[in-house]
């Protein structure tokens, strides 16, 4: 999911950076003191998740966790993913500093979308419904990211359908894995820390 430097054209990079700046501003406005530690923890989780190779069949994949970030952080997923990607670019040369804006938007926008789609319903009292929705949340966050990435690559001359097909197929194992991880994390959080998901004590 990390686009390297020198692949995208300047207009795409500027557009990505502008959208990311808007998202980060929104995220920072919504981030109050209580939320900062959880943003920090999930930033660290995001930063590490991309580095861990999960062997799967003949190849290997890495987690993105943007669905989980969106679910727990909402708009604050933007600053979290920006910080995580910036450190990956500086320390490991993944992606790059010029593509930071575009890369952040590709991963953070689906996170926010998932927050609005599943943020409320995922805390359903019915465990089956909650688990299914959590799985769909993790799955679709990666799917949306792959489609956004394909859309960015259209400007480099690749056809959207071709790029989208390759990207979605390549990320299919990640989507399933992310769905499972989000479902597991949600079950865990509902047990030990339901406030993280916006469930108040009275309701819990």
């Amino acid at each position: 999911m990390h686009i390297s430097e020198g692949v995208l054209s300047p207009p795409v990079l500027v557009a990505g950076a502008a959208l990311t700046a808007a998202g980060v501003a929104m995220g920072l406005r919504k981030m109050d003191n209580e939320k900062i530690p959880r943003v920090a923890v999930l930033t660290a989780a995001f930063f590490v998740a991309s580095l861990i190779r999960v062997p799967l069949g003949p190849s290997s994949v890495h987690l993105i966790l943007n669905g989980l970030l969106g679910l727990v952080l909402g708009w604050a997923a933007f600053p979290a993913i920006l910080v995580g990607l910036a450190l990956q670019a500086i320390l490991f040369q993944f992606g790059g500093l010029t593509t930071l804006g575009a890369n952040t938007f590709i991963m953070a926008a689906p996170a926010v979308l998932c927050y609005y789609l599943f943020g409320r319903s995922v805390t359903s009292k019915h465990p089956g419904v909650a688990t299914t929705l959590a799985f769909v949340c993790g799955f679709s966050a990666v799917l949306f990211s792959a489609l956004l990435l394909a859309a960015c690559l259209v400007f480099t001359g690749e056809s959207f359908l071709h790029a989208a097909r390759i990207l979605v197929l390549a990320h299919l194992p990640v989507m399933f894995l992310e769905g499972l991880v989000v479902a597991f994390c949600l079950a865990f959080l509902m047990k030990v820390k339901p406030e993280l998901l916006g469930v108040t004590h009275a309701a819990g």
Binding site: M1, H2, S4, P37, V41, A44, A45, V48, S50, L51, I52, R53, V54, P55, S60, H62, Q88, F92, Q93, F94, G95, V192, K193
Partner: peptide
């Protein structure tokens, strides 16, 4: 759980994950 406990748990989880998967990988 307090925040410190959550932090410790996530840190342990991260370390466990790291040691289990010996090779790291990323898109580059």
């Amino acid at each position: 759980l307090t925040w410190t406990a959550t932090l410790v748990i996530s840190a342990l989880g991260i370390i466990a994950f790291l040691t289990l998967s010996t090779r790291v990988y990323a898109h580059k």
